[in-house]
Amino acid sequence: MGKALSRAMWERYEPVHDLVYAPGIRRTTDALGMRGFWMGYFALRAAPLGAVPPAVVTSCFYVFHRSRVERALPDAWGYAPPAEVLAARERAVDAAMTQLFGPEAVASTELTEAADLAWAAAMAADTEGRVLGAANQALERPKEPHVRLWQAVTTLREHRGDGHVAALVGHGFGPVAAMVLKSAAGESDGAVLREGRNWDLTAWRAAEAELREHGLLAADGTLTAAGAAEHEAVEARTDAAAERPWAVLGQDATERLARLLEPLATTVREAGLLPSGNPVGLTGAPDVTRE
């Protein structure tokens, strides 16, 4: 395999999770009375944690400036408590998946199989020290298979994300440095990352200067050989920390889930919901089958 199994699986299930950020989802949070995209974003993603203060969400989400979070939370909980947001999230995902994939697809035996396999992997995820992964894993099992699939892949992606944050911290990369590294590696657009996470140019340039000082960033903004090696070390540690669900699920079941997810991921990509330079850094879907 060209990439670790956990990374290859992420590139298949992440597009399915990202349906929660489709344009139509905004109507759900608007209906709850929330103001703007970011209040809805933080409410939908943080709801499994309960009505925690913005400092906790800033810590868990890692790359957002606290001002971005504080403009959304705790105000969002005044419009709808977390339990209500979670119920609305399920309704929104139900509608988004049905609209994009079609009623026949979401009612198919293949999707039910995918949901059950993904749920088994998600329940096998080791969530010690992984706050977002644990909070999502603790939610009740959705009755509808397609919503169950979405919740399962969301648990898996937050589990992986928690591990990625730990890897970044372990390697000494703060929030802005982590984004600069990601942009320099060609995985995401730097301006999209900086502006979306609400960091100013001063902080961004300071992080660039620090990376240059440590020999990780070249003058033209690309990674040096040392920077590329450090970036890959973070990714390798992230991959390793995300392997347990797939080891428990087993090779055959994991390959089967990959095949079932592939047409769903392709549909999301072809719908234009994940443009080039997207913040999550999706660049393709490598092979996960035996060579």
Rank of each mutant, 00 (worst) to 15 (best):
G172A: 13
Q137R: 14
A219S: 08
S59F: 15
G161P: 02
T202H: 14
T29A: 04
A225T: 10
H171Y: 14
T58Q: 11
D75M: 15
D162H: 09
R148Y: 03
A88I: 01
P48C: 04
A43C: 03
P245Y: 01
V176H: 06
R45I: 09
P142G: 06
F173D: 01
P74T: 03
L111M: 05
P53T: 15
E14T: 15
A83M: 12
L211K: 08
G172R: 08
A118R: 00
A134E: 13
A166D: 07
G221L: 13
V180W: 00
L264S: 08
R68L: 13
M39P: 01
L282F: 03
V16T: 01
Y62D: 08
E128T: 10
P286H: 10
V280W: 11
K143P: 02
A88K: 00
H214N: 15
E128G: 11
T28H: 12
R130M: 06
L49W: 05
A96F: 03
E291A: 15
T29R: 00
A92Q: 09
A191R: 13
V234L: 12
T289Q: 11
P82M: 08
D239G: 12
A240F: 07
M97S: 00
A80K: 03
P54E: 00
S188F: 06
R194C: 05
P54S: 00
G190C: 03
A80Q: 04
D252F: 09
V56M: 14
G33I: 02
T112D: 13
P23I: 13
G281Q: 14
R141A: 11
V192N: 09
P245S: 00
E262K: 09
R212Y: 00
E243I: 04
L100R: 03
E243C: 04
S6H: 01
R148G: 03
A247P: 05
V52L: 03
A285N: 15
D239W: 02
G163R: 01
K3R: 15
A206S: 10
A247D: 15
